[in-house]
Design a protein around this nucleic acid. Structure first.
Length: 425
RNA sequence: GUGAGUGUAGCUCAAUUGGCAGAGCACUGGACUGUGGCUCCAGUGGUUGAGGGUUCAAGCCCCUUCACUCACCCCA
C-alpha cells in the first residue's frame, strides 16, 4: 500500500460482502426470537452525554475510566460513544415516559458499541451487541425469561454447546456486609495474590474473585472463601433460589459460580454469563453473552424505583463460535448482454422492465466480446443469459441461453416476460 | 495500558550466507470475428506496511512508526 492510502481506524473494520450475509443471518434470527418473546426494537443514538455512563456503569470501572471514546463537542459538552447498551436504553425509557405509561416494557437492540481497548481476537474497538432489557418486573420470573431468551437465541443461531453460569451479587442491603467479610478474608492473603489483586483487595475486592491468574484462582478455590450466598439477605436469597427452581422447571441447565462477578457497577442480585462449549472444568474463555439484574439503575438515573433485567450478546464472538452458517440460496439472476452501443442501451432498458416484473436482472455494463460478457455473467451466478446483438435487434427477438443446460433459443421480444416467468418459476 | 510474534502482487505463499523480487489463484486478452465452465499461451499487477540507518549491495541486519495476531488486562 502506498503511504498516501487512507486506512481504517485501528480496531474499526470493514464488513465485506463475503461476510455480510452471516451478519444478516444473525440479525434475522435475533429479530425472530425477540418477536417470539414479544420484545420490541429500540434504536438509541451512538452518542450520549458522558455523564450517563459515569453515573450508571460506574466512575471507577475500566470501561468508564480508561476505555470510553470521550470528547468535548463544539458546544463544550462532554460526549461519549456508547460503550454498552443498557444505560442508553434506560435513559430512553425514562426520557419518553415509559416508566409511567408502560413500566413493564421490554426492548431489544442490535447495535455497535465502542471501547478503546487493545484489539485482539474477538475484541474490536467497534464491536456489535445484540441485547435486551426487561423493565418493571421484580420477580425471578423476569430473570428466567431473559436467560431463556438468550438460550433460544444461541441455539437458533446454531450454537450447539454452551453453558450457563449464574450467581447472585446481592442487593444494597446485603452487599456491604459481604464486602466487609471478603476484605477481612483477603487482607491476610494479600501477599500471596497477584500484584493486580493486591490492589483490588482494597479498591474492588469482588473482582479478586474473578481473577484469571491461575495462582489466585487456585488459592481462592482451595480456601474457605466467604461466599456471597452465605451473606445474602433473606429477600435476595429467596429470589436466587426461586430463580434456580424456575430454570429447572423450564429445562434450562446452569451451574452456580460463586466467583462470577460483573464489570459494571449497576448489577444487583442475579448475574449470569454464557460460555461456548459444554459446562465442566474446561479453561475459562470469554463469555459470548452475559447480563443480570439491575434494580437500582433506573432510580440512580433519576427515575422511579423500578427493577430491570437485561443481557447482551457479542456478535463478533458468537460468529467465531459458529462453525458454518448455511449460505443463503441465491435466486437465479438473469444476465443481459449486448454487442454494440445501441444494443447496450436497449439491454439496459430491458433490464429495467425485467426488474419491474420482479426478475433480478444484471445488465452487462462493460461490453466487450460476447465471450467476456458471458464469462462475467457466469461468474456472477446468472442462470440465464439474454443476448441482444444485430440479428436479434433486426428480428425483434432475444437469444435466451441456459448456462447450466448449455441450450439456447430465440424468443420474440414481446414474449420474453411470459417466457421467463414460465422458465424461472 | 504491558509483553511477544508477524507484515513480500487483490488472495495464499516462495526467494540459500546480505547478491537481478518470483509462483499459484484471481483479473485482462488470445488460441476460438456472435457464445461461459476444461485446456494451452501471453499480459496487467510491487516504493517487499511506512520512515530512517549500516553496507559496494538490504525483502533479509539496526532504529523508529503503523497494522494485524497471541498472551496479560478488560469485557460481550
Amino acid at each position: 500500500m502506498a503511504n498516501k492510502t487512507v486506512q481504517s481506524v485501528r480496531g474499526f473494520v470493514d464488513l465485506l460482502p463475503e461476510d455480510a450475509w452471516k451478519w444478516q443471518f444473525l440479525e434475522a434470527t435475533a429479530r425472530e426470537v425477540f418477536q417470539l418473546y414479544g420484545f420490541e426494537e429500540i434504536r438509541t443514538p451512538l452518542l450520549e452525554k458522558t455523564d450517563l455512563f459515569s453515573r450508571s456503569v460506574g466512575e471507577a470501572t475500566d470501561i468508564v475510566g480508561k476505555e470510553m471514546y470521550t470528547f468535548t463537542d463544539r458546544s463544550g459538552d462532554s460526549l461519549s460513544l456508547r460503550p454498552e447498551g443498557t444505560a442508553p436504553v434506560v435513559r430512553a425509557y425514562l426520557e419518553h415516559g415509559f416508566a409511567k405509561s408502560h413500566p413493564e416494557s421490554s426492548f431489544y437492540y442490535l447495535a455497535p458499541m465502542f471501547r478503546h481497548e487493545r484489539p485482539q481476537h474477538g475484541r474490536l474497538r467497534q464491536f456489535h451487541q445484540i441485547g435486551a432489557e426487561l423493565f418493571g418486573i421484580p420477580g425471578p420470573e423476569a430473570d428466567a425469561e431473559i436467560i431463556s431468551l438468550q438460550a433460544d437465541l444461541l441455539s437458533r443461531m446454531g450454537l450447539k454447546d454452551f453453558s450457563l453460569a449464574i450467581n447472585s451479587l446481592g442487593c444494597r442491603a446485603c452487599q456491604p456486609e459481604y464486602h466487609r467479610r471478603l476484605v477481612g478474608f483477603l487482607e491476610p492473603l494479600a501477599p500471596k495474590l497477584c500484584p493486580n489483586c493486591q490492589k483490588r483487595v482494597r479498591g474492588n475486592p469482588l473482582r479478586v474473585l474473578d481473577c484469571k491468574e491461575a495462582e489466585c484462582r487456585a488459592l481462592l478455590r482451595s480456601q474457605s472463601v466467604p461466599r456471597i450466598s452465605d451473606s445474602l439477605c433473606p429477600a435476595c436469597s429467596e429470589h436466587f433460589s426461586e430463580l434456580q427452581a424456575i430454570l429447572k422447571t423450564m429445562g434450562l441447565e446452569f451451574t452456580l459460580d460463586p466467583f462470577l462477578v460483573r464489570g459494571l457497577d449497576y448489577y444487583t442480585r442475579t448475574a449470569f454469563e454464557i460460555y461456548p462449549g459444554k459446562s465442566g472444568s474446561q479453561s475459562r474463555t470469554d463469555a459470548i453473552s452475559a447480563g443480570g439484574r439491575y434494580d437500582e439503575l433506573i432510580s440512580d438515573l433519576g427515575g422511579p424505583a423500578l427493577p430491570a433485567v437485561g443481557f447482551a450478546l457479542g456478535m463478533e464472538r458468537i460468529l467465531l463460535q459458529l462453525p458454518e452458517i448455511p449460505p443463503p440460496a441465491k435466486k437465479p439472476a438473469v444476465a443481459l448482454l449486448a454487442m454494440g452501443v445501441s444494443a447496450r442501451r436497449l439491454v439496459q432498458k430491458l433490464a429495467r422492465e425485467l426488474r419491474e416484473n420482479g426478475f433480478p436482472a444484471r445488465a452487462d455494463l462493460k461490453g466487450g466480446s460476447f465471450k467476456a460478457q458471458i464469462h462475467r455473467a457466469d461468474r456472477a451466478g446468472a442462470g440465464l443469459v439474454l443476448i441482444l446483438g444485430e440479428d436479434e435487434i433486426r428480428d425483434q427477438t432475444v437469444m435466451v441461453k441456459d448456462l447450466k443446460k448449455s441450450e439456447q433459443e430465440k424468443i420474440p421480444a414481446k414474449d420474453l416476460v411470459a417466457y421467463l416467468r414460465n422458465k424461472l418459476s
